[in-house]
Each structure stands twice: as C-alpha cells, then as structure tokens.
Simulated assay, not measured.
Amino acid sequence: MKADYDFSKGERGKFFHPDAVFSFPIYLEPDVNEVMNKLTHENGVEVEILVNEWRES
C-alpha cells in the first residue's frame, strides 16, 4: 500500500446513486435456507424479513 494517494483528478459522487437499493447477503445452513425459501414463497415475503422476525422471537 502506498503512503500517499493522489485524488486530485477524482470525481466526487461519480458512482453515487440516490435510488440504489442495497441487499446484504444472508448465509444460512442448507436445510434452514430451504425452509426459509419455502416460507417466503408461501407468505409472499422476502427472506430477509422472515430471518429478522425469526431472529427476534
């Protein structure tokens, strides 16, 4: 890694998109993943919501 970097020709906000949606990965054991995916299809809810609800209970 260099001691100094030259950002004088950098462009602020070049890759910023205000309407971007971030989706963080969820890593589950295969059997838990299968059950969660089944529940998402049955209930029409995203897996992230089910996992968060399951974790909070």
Rank of each mutant, 00 (worst) to 15 (best):
E11A: 01
G10T: 06
K14S: 02
E42A: 07
F7A: 11
H41V: 09
P18T: 01
G44S: 08
V21K: 02
V32E: 09
D6L: 12
I26P: 01
M36V: 13
D6S: 12
F24K: 06
L28G: 00
V51R: 08
N37E: 13
Y27E: 07
Y5C: 14
V21Y: 04
D6A: 09
H41R: 15
N43W: 12
E42Y: 03
V51F: 15
E42P: 02
K14F: 00
T40H: 09
N52R: 12
E53C: 13
P30N: 00
L39S: 07
S8T: 14
N52I: 02
P25C: 02
N43D: 09
E42S: 05
E48I: 03
E42K: 05
F16T: 09
L39D: 07
F22V: 15
E11R: 02
V45A: 02
D19N: 04
F15Y: 05
A20D: 08
E46C: 04
S23N: 13
A3P: 08
D19G: 06
G44V: 04
F16Y: 15
D6K: 15
N37L: 09
M36Y: 14
V32F: 07
G44H: 02
N37T: 13
N52G: 01
V32C: 12
K9A: 14
K9D: 12
V35I: 15
V47A: 14
I26L: 06
G44E: 03
E29A: 12
P30D: 04
D6W: 15
A3K: 12
E34L: 13
Y5I: 11
G13P: 00
E53M: 10
N37C: 08
V35M: 11
A20G: 04
L50I: 15
D19H: 03
M36A: 15
M36K: 07
P25L: 04
V51P: 05
V35R: 15
G10L: 06
K14R: 00
N52H: 08
V47H: 12
V51H: 13
V32M: 13
